[in-house]
Nucleic acid binder design. Structure first.
Length: 645
RNA sequence: GCUGGCGUGGCUCAGUGGUAGAGCAGCGCACUCGUAAUGCGCAGGUCGUGGGUUCGACUCCCACCGCCAGCUCCA
């Protein structure tokens, strides 16, 4: 057989992966947890003598760690059954950074029971039970799990079509599983149970809610500790925490859930973003409008939202003879803007943009700080174009997105093209020709851009295919920030027209697009991305002037005035506190620049510049600093290096 | 909405079936200070809300509201 390094190894007939490892070396044999044979992961106990290639998997590889965690999930299940023999096991997969097991305890289960459970798991690990794979006829296993009163396992088995299935046995514990697994439970060195939460069986709200226990495992205790430390550190970047600590936004019970208040400093960030994106869009040929956040219910009946989206809308209110609703999106208003005039084919595309205030009723459990709210302002636009312009407009939007991401410092993002599920005529507008055309044009545009994308069948909007751009957050999750949607449907609903070269009316196509998402979500994202330490152009306070003593106040105020004259956001910390204290507070508030002013600076018309996170970088004339900071801000550089501007 | 947890001054958190505590923040006074917290003092809470149990509830029970983790949902 061939090894990964290209060498060839002869082994006796019937040799297992473990024996191959032994032949290669004792250290490897001890470290190996599984093997990859012909591209497939298998247990060490698998005979591999017929294989052409064998690669041994250790805990140094991502696959090895996954196997470790998967086996740890089994140990958890085993411990659960020892302590709760009546528990019904559902599924126990690995996830990024850990694993979970869904279990029906038939009674409330709380996190307080973790320590006892962990104790039992440690026993299972100490027993060092060998883990065996067995393959049996599926029907036999259905009976087997019926006898063991494991209905969820039976249900899974009933949906499997293979004639045989594999199970894994460790001591008295048996689980239905594809594997592979560690050779024995004793190989688990470091694990922890983390949290407990409810999860619907099969992810279906209408099915029973199970108890999901989350845990994780690492090759060594040190790595586990390191992971727990990282999780703790991530908590400090949480935008809700930073939002309070830095005075950016607040949510108040009196105002209502999901209805955040933008405090002055958060508003400064938002205003900066708004001015930035509006200017950029104006340059890109968009026309910005203002339309009201309310409309007659009728408008949404025409658009179809009333039928398809009502559960996410606030209920209507009756005023005089009108019935009004808070708008959940801006498209109908923008359509009405388009309809205010006749349009010639020569003036298309018409790009109507707005920072549109919308309200959506979101279920209470999903509300999260600024990231998920009920009242939000979307960086929205609707492009009305001819069918032959779709591809070009689509390209222009994606390029705009790419530029914005560069300015905001987003480097890690993925494109997802969401298509309809042709079988689901309930969710998606039933018009196959329309869908096929839209999907083809979008694919062509993406190919032309040369971007790689994944596809999500069934993820489209009800009116057309969409491209989502998901940006990797600090937490490692990808969050949808931008979206581009082709829509052949609303123009039909609203009877939109343009006059073609043939002097006949034609139907335009709409492209819905959001580049920087809602102001709320984007701000939340940026807070976490930068951990509150914003680049200068976004920082709510760009410089704080720190007079050393009272006699320096006058010059401090003059420096402030010069900063403000250049539209820089600055403050004077005139409190009766020592310099050290003012510096500490400014650092904690993550202000990019601190300008210390004492006798020397007053005398020379200078400021002693201290850069956030770096310290004293020397004194320069106040005018020089103002000019450099203004340039830095204008350049939208992501670093604070004043010498490079 | 569902499961579990949590709710004590602006913030972070102690605490207990028998008259509510600390630190930070705030206010006052003193210090006038050179690169990450000056000192002293003062004030501030119907212990989320509403019921119930009890001689007595912040503590125990119930309901509701909100927050957190996750699920579900997400045009």
């Amino acid at each position: 057989m061939t090894l990964p390094d290209g060498s060839v190894l002869e082994v006796p007939a019937g040799s297992t992966a473990a024996q191959v490892a032994e032949r290669i070396g004792r250290r490897l044999a001890q470290a190996a947890v599984a093997a990859r044979v012909g591209g497939e992961l298998v247990d060490l106990s698998t005979p591999v003598d017929q294989a052409t290639t064998v690669e041994l998997i250790t805990l140094d590889s991502p696959e090895g760690i996954q196997i470790l965690r998967h086996s740890c999930a089994h140990v958890l299940a085993q411990a659960v059954l020892r302590r709760y023999p009546q528990a019904k096991l559902a599924i126990g997969p690995t996830i990024e950074d850990g694993f979970y097991y869904d279990i029906d305890f038939g009674q409330p289960f709380s996190q307080e029971e973790f320590s006892a459970l962990e104790e039992e798991m440690r026993k299972v690990i100490q027993e060092d039970l060998p883990i065996h794979r067995e393959v049996h006829p599926r029907q036999e296993m259905i009976r087997f799990f019926q006898e063991r009163r494991q209905p969820y396992k039976v249900e899974i088995l009933q949906e499997i079509t293979d004639p045989t299935v594999s199970i894994y046995r460790q001591g008295e514990f048996v689980d239905l599983c594809r594997g592979p697994h560690l050779p024995s439970t004793g190989r688990i060195k470091a694990f922890a149970l983390l949290s407990v939460a409810g999860a619907y069986w099969r992810g279906d709200e209408k099915r029973p809610m199970l108890t999901r226990i989350y845990g994780t495992a690492f090759p060594t205790a040190a790595e586990l500790q390191e992971h727990l430390r990282r999780v703790e550190e991530a908590r400090h970047r949480d935008h809700r925490r930073l939002g309070r600590e830095l005075g950016l936004f607040a949510v108040s019970d009196e105002v209502g859930q999901g209805l955040p208040l933008w405090l002055p400093k958060g508003a400064a960030i938002r205003r900066t973003l708004e001015r930035y994106i509006v200017d950029l869009e104006l340059r890109a040929g968009y026309e910005h409008v203002y339309t009201p956040p309310l409309a007659r219910t009728e408008l949404y009946k025409i658009s179809g939202h009333w039928d398809h989206y009502r559960e996410n809308m606030y209920p209507p209110m009756k005023v005089d003879d009108e019935e009004l609703v808070l708008r959940p999106m801006n498209c109908p208003h923008h359509i009405m803007v388009y309809k205010q005039a006749q349009h010639s084919y020569k003036e298309l595309p018409v790009r109507i943009a707005e920072l549109g205030l919308m309200h959506r009723y979101e279920r209470s459990g999903v509300l999260t700080g600024l990231a998920r709210v009920r009242g939000m302002t979307l960086n929205d636009a609707h492009i009305f174009c001819r069918p032959d312009q779709i591809k070009d407009e689509f390209l222009r939007v994606v390029r705009l997105i790419q530029q914005v991401y560069q300015d905001l410092g987003f480097h890690d993002y993925v494109y997802t093209l969401s298509l309809r599920d042709p079988a689901d005529t309930h969710k998606f507008v039933d018009n196959p020709l329309m869908w096929e055309t839209a999907e083809r044009v979008v694919r062509e545009a993406l190919d032309e851009l040369g971007v790689t994308y994944r596809t999500d069948v069934g993820g489209a909007a009800f009116y057309g295919p969409k491209l989502d751009v998901d940006v990797k957050s600090v937490a490692g999750k990808y969050e949808t920030i931008s979206t581009v949607q082709v829509d052949f449907y609303l123009p039909e609903r609203f009877q939109l027209e343009y006059i073609g070269a043939d002097n006949q009316p034609h139907r335009p196509v709409m492209i819905h697009r959001g580049v920087i998402s809602t102001m709320e979500r984007m701000t939340a994202f940026l807070i976490e991305l930068y951990g509150g330490a914003f680049p200068a152009w976004l920082a709510p306070v760009q410089a704080v002037v720190l007079p050393v003593a009272d006699r320096h106040q006058t010059w401090a105020q003059q420096v402030l005035a010069r900063l403000q004259a250049e539209d820089l956001r600055a403050e004077v910390d005139g409190r009766d506190e020592k310099l050290n204290r003012k510096i500490r507070d400014a650092e904690v508030q993550k202000v990019p620049f601190m300008l210390v002013i004492g006798d020397r600076e007053v005398e020379n018309g200078q400021v002693a510049v201290r850069q956030r996170g770096k310290g004293d970088i020397g004194s320069i004339p106040a005018a020089t600093f103002v000019e450099r900071l203004a340039r830095l801000v204008r350049s939208r550089r992501l670093d604070l290096d004043l010498d490079r501007v």
